[in-house]
Nucleic acid binder design. Sequence first.
DNA 1: TGCTGCGGTCTGTGATCACATTTAAGCTGT
DNA 2: ACAGCTTAAATGTGATCACAGACCGCAGCA
Lengths: 265, 265
Amino acid sequence: MTAMAIAGTNRRERVTLGGRVHTELRELLMSGELAPGQKMSLRNVAEALGTSMTPVREAVARLVAEQSLEVLPNRAVRVPLMTRERFRELTTVRLAVEGYAVEEAARRRTEADLAAMRCFEDAFLAEARSPRPQAERAVRSNKELHFAVYRAAGLPTLVGIIEGLWLKIGPVLNLDLKVSPERLKTGGATEHHRRLVAAVEAGDGCAARSALVDDIKGAASFIESTGRLLDEAGPDLNRHPVGALAPEGETQPERDIATAHLGSR
Amino acid sequence: MTAMAIAGTNRRERVTLGGRVHTELRELLMSGELAPGQKMSLRNVAEALGTSMTPVREAVARLVAEQSLEVLPNRAVRVPLMTRERFRELTTVRLAVEGYAVEEAARRRTEADLAAMRCFEDAFLAEARSPRPQAERAVRSNKELHFAVYRAAGLPTLVGIIEGLWLKIGPVLNLDLKVSPERLKTGGATEHHRRLVAAVEAGDGCAARSALVDDIKGAASFIESTGRLLDEAGPDLNRHPVGALAPEGETQPERDIATAHLGSR
DNA sequence: TGCTGCGGTCTGTGATCACATTTAAGCTGT
DNA sequence: ACAGCTTAAATGTGATCACAGACCGCAGCA
């Protein structure tokens, strides 16, 4: 019983099973469904996805290489914890790289780019104004909007770099958004988005960068205010993960979501 | 016969065999010893390195993920060809990212950083002024100098991003430097380096960026002038891997035993 | 009661096997 | 003698096996 027979992977495009697992874990990380500190077992992930260990190992190796996962000295694999120092560094780099991206986007955007941006902005706006906003959708719309702008810069390499940054910072960013969805209304994100899209449309790179900087800084200061970031990585914190991917004993609700999304058999 | 017994990998630090292979291939790529278009066979690489296929597969998966290698639709693995369009895109991104890095470096460099920079600058200078300059050493010194500056920015994430960029553009950059070492003297690289280090030392981020931009642009225009870049990737070029950048027929002298054994078939 | 060995389970890692697909040589048929 | 088909070698991919080390719990001793 090969897993190849389970999933219809005999598509024309070359999708390796390892690539599929990589994408799967990537989405889970970006959407904040895997909390920082959460430990993962290759075998459990493989079982949850209905494959063997081999593709999982390849996917995890890739994620470890791009520092979206880390392997502890004890060989345990987990979602990296985020120290305040690291968070600030990532934010600094994001400001520089994504700021440059939106400047370029303002200069080179096409009409199709603008249409995509408006579409995702509307989606985010609708979710933020909803009486019962769903963090999941808001996170996705926010991401789609940002990357619609970044893609408009016409520099695929840069988009890839930014994806790597989001993958590193996504767990903390989106986990906190899930916990406190009221930030959607009070954070001013919708206003930043409006300014960003308008500036890109007007071709004003400077204003676009300003709007993006406000957006990023706003989210960053909120995260810092939650006090969830580590001041410094204590050695004992390596021993207390938030939870394992495969629930032992009783299953927590959000872990069920993760497992449900992982299981594709 | 386990390969673990071959190499003394029982160090205190956690070095997996896959990581070792990754580093090995990474160096070969950065130093331009693997020409663009060169095909690789997992089994041959494994045999050449004295390991099994598994670590090689992991390393190649990582390199493919960061687009330093690519797998063709026929599942063949090779060093990606460089189109002119892609080269220009990478250069644009490099100008933005590395330019920001040196600006930050000028602001935050310590005395230790400056010492390291001067050290590698001298090494590069000595090699460039040598009557018989060795491309290998010059390439290494150049890289060390640049990264000494980038590290001075105090943003490890940014350094990682730049490493990824160099890994993608390294094959063409350094392969051409090997073919025509006279560029060491005529390219003005030594002058750019002097200006860069001086500006960083003086804390003048603007001048530092200017020097770096000249350095990158100088090298880029030289590469473009050689005419070795592809105008557009024709579909049949997938079948003629080595021919694009490396002359086929006779094997080049620098294609040493290790490299020759690494190739497919 | 509190600490210390000690065994079993589970972890990641590397090697090996199995298979579908592709590539190249060899061979047959006119 | 050459085109077309067949077959054999080789490739990447996934599954499975083997193994060293870490973690956890249980028993035994002071």
